[in-house]
């Protein structure tokens, strides 16, 4: 298996605060790597660094062997990495069709067409329909995003990222704010869609340990910006120390929230 995305000794400071400290990861084709850890561990920061949005203060970020530290989202989308967000990011006044079309237009390099009607573009239309049906959104095509349910908004956010036909996709808590019944639905959708679309690797930030255990090929645990463990699910959950450090804390947090 060849490495597709990696960090080497990545550090990120916010002022004096160390959000990431000497994080080295390698993600290979065919993997679904889950990043877990308590709130404030640095998971979102790591996703931001991995997607070139934040420039690390130390270390390297390489995507297919090329340095992508801080190159920004637009270039990243072109090179084949996509992202869905922890807090839902949608275009409130745009329909499901239009939202997915934004990504399809980028992916097909049609953004500089000024004079053709996007609604009449057969290629775009068919591709939008195809992506929407993978995520079960085909009957909502003409609905404006703001009127979707929370779960549908999440799906739309993810669907639009998939429409870029990325090689790697990063999902920051794709199931937060969604009922536990819907969580599995979303994850199954994502994994199936990834297979169909030829996505080579998925990076998942997730709190729900059931989902992590079921779908991951590997689990990376972060605490206070450091990698505490990096191993397959079986080895991860059979180590009482790790479980106590990560799962225990998270269960504690959940108990506090409830």
């Amino acid at each position: 298996m060849s490495t597709i995305l990696e960090t080497v000794g990545v550090g990120k400071m916010y002022g004096d605060f160390v959000a990431l400290d000497d994080v080295s990861l390698a993600i290979a084709e065919g993997e679904l790597v889950s990043i877990v850890g308590p709130n404030g561990a640095g998971k979102t920061t790591l996703v931001n660094v991995l997607t070139g949005l934040l420039k690390p203060t130390a270390g390297l970020v390489r995507f297919r062997g090329q340095d992508i530290a801080g190159i920004g989202p637009v270039m990243l989308a072109r090179r084949g990495m996509a992202r869905a967000f922890q807090l839902v990011h949608i275009f409130p006044a745009m329909t499901v069709r239009q939202t997915i079309a934004v990504a399809v237009v980028s992916q097909e390099g049609k953004g500089l067409r000024f004079f053709s009607a996007v609604d009449d573009d057969r290629g775009v239309r068919d591709r939008v329909r195809e992506v929407a049906s993978i995520f079960g959104l085909e009957r909502k095509l003409e609905t404006e995003a703001r009127y979707l349910s929370q779960g549908e908004k999440k799906l739309l956010d993810i669907a639009s990222a998939f429409a870029l036909q990325p090689e790697v996709i990063l999902l920051d808590e794709p199931t937060s704010g969604v009922s536990s019944a819907d969580k599995h639905g979303i994850m199954r959708n994502v994994v199936d869609a990834a297979k169909k679309a030829g996505v080579k690797a998925i990076i998942l930030v997730e709190h729900d340990m059931d989902l992590v255990a079921e779908y991951s090929t590997r689990i990376v645990a972060l605490t206070a910006g450091k990698v505490l463990a990096d191993r397959p699910p079986a080895a991860f959950f059979s180590d009482p120390e790790i479980v106590a450090a990560i799962v225990g804390k998270m269960v504690g947090r959940l108990a506090k929230e409830a």
């Binding site: 989202p73 637009v74 275009f91 409130p92 934004v102 980028s106 500089l112 067409r113 996007v118």
Partner: peptide, 24 residues
């Protein structure tokens, strides 16, 4: 109504998200 126009509207609705979808 062109693809260009669609990208403009997307950037108005949510700049960050539109950038992640490749909108320049």
């Amino acid at each position: 109504h062109s693809p260009f126009g669609l990208h403009l509207v997307a950037s108005r609705e949510n700049r960050r998200k539109s950038e992640y979808l490749g909108v320049r």
